[in-house]
Amino acid sequence: MKERTIRLTVNGRPYERTVEVRKTLADFLREDLDLTGTHLGCEHGVCGACTVVVNGEAVRSCLLFAVQLEGANILTVEGLADGDNLHPIQEAFWEHHGLQCGFCTPGFLLTLYCFLKETPRPSEAEIREAISGNLCRCTGYHNIVIAARAAAEKLASAGPTP
């Protein structure tokens, strides 16, 4: 069995695709669904650039095979904004210069998306710990931490999100 057919939901949209069993989730998203916002920075689970949300939890998409995602609900960076309205975390990154080259950014956004749901009022230390599995080579993290805190405030004042 070198191939399998899977059905899953990505960014609210159902897909059915036949994939080679060895294809990683990251490559599946990028190649089969053309969702290239999920980036590959190391392909061995260290850099966090490929982080996506699977059934509500942030995971490394380079360390999963697409065939394992049968029935899963996945959120990628492409699904974060509501049309032209950026998600508050995206807004905060923009406002506070939390990105430079932008390559690692999708992974940070999705990591924080999960983190802020679970920890709506984080301390700076908690934010640093939460993003410690995501590498950024441009910003020195300083503005990412500031953006995360600002996003937490925005989300708290906006009330619970779906």
């Binding site: 969702l35 916002g37 492409e78 974060l80 904004a81 950026l86 990154f93 990105l99 080259c101 956004l109």
Partner: peptide, 8 residues
């Protein structure tokens, strides 16, 4: 930034 933040 907008295009980078939205994965585009």
């Amino acid at each position: 930034d907008r295009r980078l933040l939205t994965g585009r």
